[in-house]
Amino acid sequence: MLDALRIEIVEVSNEKVVARCPFMMQPDNTLDSFMGSFNSETVASVGSWNLLDMENEYAIGLEISANHIRGESEGTVKATGFPIHKTTMVWEIQITDENDKPICFSRCTTAVNKRIKKNNS
Rank of each mutant, 00 (worst) to 15 (best):
1 M>I: 12
1 M>D: 13
6 R>V: 07
9 I>E: 01
9 I>L: 04
10 V>I: 06
10 V>T: 08
11 E>H: 09
12 V>T: 14
13 S>D: 13
15 E>N: 10
16 K>M: 06
16 K>H: 07
17 V>W: 01
18 V>I: 13
18 V>H: 01
20 R>K: 07
21 C>F: 05
22 P>V: 01
23 F>V: 10
26 Q>H: 00
28 D>Q: 12
28 D>I: 13
29 N>H: 13
30 T>H: 15
31 L>S: 04
33 S>N: 11
34 F>W: 12
34 F>Y: 11
35 M>D: 06
36 G>R: 01
36 G>V: 00
38 F>T: 10
38 F>R: 06
39 N>M: 12
39 N>F: 14
40 S>V: 02
41 E>H: 04
42 T>M: 02
42 T>D: 00
42 T>Q: 02
43 V>K: 02
43 V>Q: 01
43 V>E: 03
44 A>G: 05
44 A>P: 11
44 A>I: 12
46 V>T: 00
48 S>L: 11
48 S>P: 11
49 W>P: 07
50 N>Q: 00
50 N>M: 01
51 L>G: 08
52 L>H: 04
52 L>A: 04
52 L>E: 00
53 D>K: 06
56 N>W: 01
56 N>M: 05
57 E>D: 11
58 Y>M: 13
58 Y>A: 05
59 A>T: 12
59 A>P: 15
60 I>H: 12
62 L>V: 14
62 L>H: 10
62 L>P: 04
63 E>L: 09
63 E>W: 03
64 I>H: 05
65 S>N: 09
66 A>M: 04
67 N>D: 15
67 N>S: 15
68 H>R: 08
68 H>C: 07
71 G>A: 08
71 G>V: 11
73 S>N: 14
74 E>F: 00
75 G>W: 03
77 V>Y: 00
77 V>S: 00
77 V>K: 00
78 K>S: 02
79 A>S: 08
82 F>S: 12
82 F>K: 13
83 P>W: 05
85 H>L: 08
85 H>A: 13
85 H>C: 08
88 T>Q: 13
89 M>W: 05
89 M>V: 10
90 V>S: 03
90 V>N: 12
90 V>P: 01
91 W>T: 05
91 W>S: 02
94 Q>G: 03
94 Q>T: 11
97 D>Y: 06
100 D>C: 06
100 D>R: 10
101 K>Q: 15
102 P>M: 02
105 F>T: 07
107 R>F: 05
109 T>R: 12
110 T>P: 05
110 T>N: 09
111 A>C: 11
112 V>Q: 07
112 V>A: 05
112 V>F: 00
113 N>G: 08
113 N>K: 14
113 N>R: 14
113 N>D: 05
115 R>S: 08
115 R>Y: 05
116 I>F: 15
116 I>H: 14
116 I>W: 14
117 K>G: 12
117 K>P: 08
118 K>A: 13
118 K>G: 07
120 N>Y: 11
120 N>E: 14
120 N>T: 13
121 S>Q: 09
